[in-house]
């Protein structure tokens, strides 16, 4: 109970099935005020279903969602009023201007009439579109649309901002502008739930990250804690030409190598403590069995952790 009062978002035991297929199983996490929380997972992992339940579009089979002390199931209007939701698609009227779109959302969220004008101007300034406010949305660039898409979720000053892939298809300049803006919002005390295919974005702005796979949270923690899950081991990717199976067997016996797997016909992945220093030994171990045609050493990072936990890259 204390948690639900302290945290901006508390969700517990969220589950959702479609027929016999489990889309989300027992997902739970909390987000504190001023905290940015990342949700990472490959396509089909259950991120969108989780978000649909958090914003009230889907009714969970089990579990609870409490936003700013309001239970989404028993007091949906109060809970929804505390959430700003930025969908992945540009969910705005393309034939209305940026200003008209923002006014529409002000009215939809029930802002008092006298506040609408001022709040629209504030948000236009915040997203840097004051000078294009009276142009129709279908004349905006992709980046401008993304910015106004985010702006529409900020009009009612939500306690929790939920963003689903907010930078898809955006040029680097706009991406930087969006991320800078989000960091300012978090610094001002807004809670953030962020999903993205761009690992570097999540690493940059999220304080804590949950890795979701097959509908469940498989790991959760700060970036440092997650990287620690796979240890400080480096990942060595080898491309071999020759007797790959024999080479693999030899590499498994090499001191310092904790894991050796064949990834494709001619490729082998090694996980090794201080792997970058082990390279000469690796090459001499396979000498005469297979020729090393390519080698890559990857230091531990979130991408490596994600790969280790889900078996796939984020863009798979």
């Amino acid at each position: 109970m204390t948690d639900t009062l302290i945290n901006t978002l508390t969700c517990e035991n969220l589950s959702k099935s479609y027929g016999g297929v489990v889309a989300v199983r027992d997902v739970g996490f909390t987000i504190a005020p001023g905290e940015a929380y990342g949700l990472l997972g490959p396509n089909g992992a259950g991120k969108t279903t989780t978000i649909s339940m958090l914003v009230g579009l889907l009714k969970p089979d089990t579990g609870t969602v409490v936003v700013g002390g309001a239970d989404l199931a028993t007091d949906p209007m109060a809970a929804k009023a505390k959430i700003g939701y930025v969908p992945q698609e540009i969910a705005l009227y393309p034939d209305l201007t940026g200003r008209e779109n923002l006014r529409f959302f002000c009215r939809l969220f029930g802002l008092p009439r006298r506040e609408v004008r001022g709040r629209v101007e504030e948000v236009l300034d915040l997203v840097g579109l004051a000078d294009r406010a009276d142009a129709k949305l279908d004349t905006y660039s992709g980046g401008m649309k993304r910015r106004i898409n985010i702006g529409a979720a900020l009009l009612h000053r939500p306690e929790l901002l939920i963003l689903d892939e907010p930078t898809v298809g955006v040029d680097p300049q706009s991406r930087k502008s969006i991320l800078d803006g989000l960091e300012r919002l978090v610094a001002d005390g807004m809670a953030l739930l962020y999903t993205s295919h761009y690992m570097e974005e999540v690493e940059r702005i999220c304080h804590r990250i949950a890795i979701v796979d097959h509908g469940s949270v498989v790991a959760e923690g700060t970036r440092h804690e997650l990287v620690e899950l796979v240890g400080g081991a480096d990942r060595i990717e080898l491309t071999l030409d020759g007797d790959v199976e024999t080479a693999l067997a030899k590499l498994r016996g090499l001191g310092g190598v904790t894991e050796a797997v064949r990834t494709t016909a001619g490729s082998v992945r090694l996980i090794a403590e201080g792997g970058r220093y082990l390279l000469p030994a690796v090459i001499s171990t396979v000498d005469g069995i297979a020729a090393v045609t390519a080698v890559e050493v990857v230091e531990p990072d979130l991408e490596a952790t994600f790969l280790h936990l889900t078996g796939s890259t984020l863009r798979d």
Partner: peptide, 17 residues
Amino acid sequence: VESRRIGMLPRAFTAPV
């Protein structure tokens, strides 16, 4: 159809309405 396709209506459903 356009409102449905671009996700405008689901977004409206997330408002306190």
